[in-house]
Design a protein around this nucleic acid. Structure first.
Lengths: 348, 348
DNA sequence: ATCACCGAGGTGAGCGTTAACATCACTCGG
DNA sequence: CCGAGTGATGTTAACGCTCACCTCGGTGAT
């Protein structure tokens, strides 16, 4: 039953070890200019007192930062959630602390509102830039503290190469691959149930997945149907996809993520269309549940956790330019063929 | 392009407004002992300089805390994730910051390891106490800083009433309700695919869901089959449930959560048993996907987000005993009957 | 021997804020 | 008309740490 007595400070350690507080600081921070004997004395005092450096005081005094703030608009999406997990793991292994700060679109009107979500000016920040609030936050921080920010988002290889603060995967390429796969299966064309774009309104903003899909269709000389916009939730997707599943001419749907795909499967089931017999469905992200739906979902694997880790590495690099710029090192998106895709039924 | 010039401090504001820094502090903290005219001058200086109080300095100086640390062992589980969202929302509305600190079972050996995951001693903390690391963390913080901690977990109504630092829902009651429902449908007995208990090993530790299930079975004078232990992942559940789905005598399975239920559905499908014709499956938690599986999952709704919010309220109450102890105000767990449950096939 | 140099360690000044106390100009009752 | 309040504001000392600079004793070159 440890008494909640005040935690030991650097001074307490110094007194016990018979040295100055600065020497304790040196030991704690691993400075080489401390004699071995002194170091041992100090270390002993530290364990005896159970001393732990106070993070707040440390950053206040202008020491190393050791904390990241993750700015995201939606924690219930699989991508951001997995990326956050990656960031957290990487941070933990270095003993950094992780703050999470959610950008509610409802109260993110001015730039100041975004900056206000940072615990302090200059705080190292990772932004999930996959939607409107995220994109705005990205821009604000880019203007305001470019050295201490990194954004995660879907981007083309060129964008990625051009922006030293950007981390992500080439969604468009993956979508293209999935579309090509469906075409090769014999489908005349592929429809697309799209996630919201980065500006929130479909049509504006970048839509890498939709772009990759459309490109392949055009290249193959196929009709490019209007993509069907959906929100992020199951309910929205279920509603949005109705016209698609109801139309017998639609034989293949590429869904913007696995949630939309699951909703599509259900919608198809309810109108009596079998999957993959009548309708092929391909998802995106390889959300954990996707291997266990019935039938199991064909989807595009994305290693968000590794991307999160990569974002953290890059941020560290940018904050204290010490180490060389870390190279991205995560697997490319990859199509995982399971049970929801197959050749179309031969025409009668 | 705001220059990354140093952020304005309280002194800068004081100088511009022609007052002392303490007066600025008073204005910022809404002290009543400031003349209206002075307050206006200060407020004006604040907006002109874009001054934001520095959180670090504030807590260092012993001011109000305004930050919570959430200790959890697994962010990929729906319950903790939803609770975290609730905490975050509640915290955000009061402008508190949220830290997340993950307890990896692998490096959580000593009590010190747990305390080390706190950014500082006495930091207000919410613990997700649904598994072994969580339970240990709960105990450590209870011994070490009981005033600044709150735990979230499954507990009986009595436990909840007895522990002023506890927040959660009566899982056992909900499991009982679900079991009774299945019995009423005509099943001879109900089998149980169980999530890990709070000690990690099945048999030790509390298992509220399993307890509620077993109680109802005993009360009804039915056979109480051995619960089948599963891990948290789809893969583990899929493997663990094999003997159950393979046994034609098993006509109803209560699953410890919706993930296990989904894996069970798939396992049943693969051995050719129809749901709910041959086998009724009931899940737990009402995970968002559960309404969109095919067939849609019968499950027990749990409003984790509200529980998270409740935990935050309670923590605030405990940290600065000002306001009265907030009353729990979230919906009881409730059975949602969808499509995976039905009467057993009549015996031939 | 002299001096520059180096390694080990100490000292003092912040960092931005709050708590506690001090000060000052008034106002009011006796 | 004077001392006790009182309300508005200023001063000083932490909080726990790091940074920049200083001191001191020993070494090696000259």
């Amino acid at each position: 039953m440890a008494q909640p007595k005040k935690a030991a400070s650097i001074w307490d350690v110094a007194r016990l070890a018979g040295v100055s507080h600065q020497t304790v600081s040196r030991v704690v921070n691993g400075s080489p200019r401390v004699a071995a004997a002194t170091r041992d004395k100090v270390l002993e005092a530290i364990t005896e007192l159970g001393y732990r450096p106070n993070r707040l005081a440390r950053s206040l005094a202008g020491g190393a930062v050791e904390s990241v703030t993750v700015l995201t608009a939606d924690t219930s999406l699989y991508g951001p959630e997995a990326a956050l997990r990656g960031i957290e793991k990487a941070a933990r292994s270095l003993d950094w602390s992780v703050q999470i700060s959610v950008l509610d679109p409802a109260d993110t009107h001015s730039d100041a509102d975004i900056v206000a979500r940072l615990p302090r000016a200059g705080e190292p920040t990772i932004i999930m830039a996959h939607d409107e609030p995220g994109m705005r936050a990205k821009q604000v921080l880019l203007d305001t503290q470019p050295q201490a920010m990194v954004a995660i988002g879907p981007y083309t290889a060129e964008e990625l190469a051009a922006s030293p603060w950007l981390v992500g995967m080439d969604d468009g390429k993956a979508a293209a691959e999935a579309t090509r796969y469906l075409l090769d299966l014999g489908h005349d064309t592929v429809h697309h149930l799209a996630i919201p774009t980065s500006t929130g309104t479909f049509g504006g903003g970048k839509a890498h997945r939709a772009d990759g899909w459309a490109r392949v269709l055009r290249e193959a000389g196929r009709e490019v149907p209007d993509p069907v916009p959906s929100g992020w939730t199951f309910a929205e997707a279920f509603k949005a996809v109705q016209p698609l599943v109801a139309d017998p001419a639609v034989t293949a749907i590429l869904c913007g993520n696995d949630h939309l795909a699951l909703a599509t499967m259900r919608a198809a089931h309810l109108v009596g269309r079998s999957v993959p017999g009548d309708l092929s469905i391909v998802g995106f992200d390889n959300t954990p549940f996707s291997a266990y739906t019935t039938p199991a979902l064909t989807t595009v694997n994305q290693d968000f956790e590794s991307v999160g880790r990569g974002a953290f590495e890059l941020l560290r690099h940018r904050v204290d330019g010490s180490q060389p710029r870390p190279k991205p090192s995560w697997p490319e998106p990859e199509l995982i063929v399971r049970e929801t895709s197959g050749p179309p039924r031969p025409r009668s």
